[in-house]
Amino acid sequence: MGKTEASRIVSVQAGDRLPEREFKPDNIQSFLYNAILFNAHRIHYDYPYATEVEGYPGLVVPGPLIGDWLNQCVEEWLGEDGRLQSIEYSNRVAAYTGDTLYSGGEVLEVDPHSGQVKVEVFVKNESGEVVAPGKATAQLHV
C-alpha cells in the first residue's frame, strides 16, 4: 500500500480550495431538469403563479439541482483520484432563474493513512450569500 507520486493524498491538505464554478440557470435548464424528474411544481416554470400567488420574485431554481452542483463540485475536484462517499447539504436561501450562482469549497480534513477527506462546499449567489452549504466525505485512492 505504498504511496506513489501519482497519489493525490500526498498533495491534498486542509485549507485547499476546490475550484469555483459559475452557474447561470435559465429556462431551458429548468425545463430539462423538471422534465427528467417529472416535477410539475409550478414555482419552477409558471411565472405568474410563482410571483403573484406564491410571492416569489421569480421562478425558483429547484433545490435538488443546487444540491447536485455541490456533488459536482466535489466530483470535479476529485476527478478519477477518489470516490464521493457521502454528502449533506441544506437549501437555505431560494435562487431564481436568471441568477448567477457560484459553487466552491475547501478541504477541512485529510486522513493520510486511510485517504479519507472531508470537504466543505457551498453554492453562493451574486451577493455572496450561501444559498446551499454542505459537507462531503470522499475516499482518495491510496
Binding site: Y89, S90, N91, R92
Partner: peptide
C-alpha cells in the same frame, strides 16, 4: 428549507 444526507 430542509436538509439531507446521502450515503453513496
Amino acid at each position: 428549507a430542509g436538509g439531507l444526507k446521502i450515503d453513496y
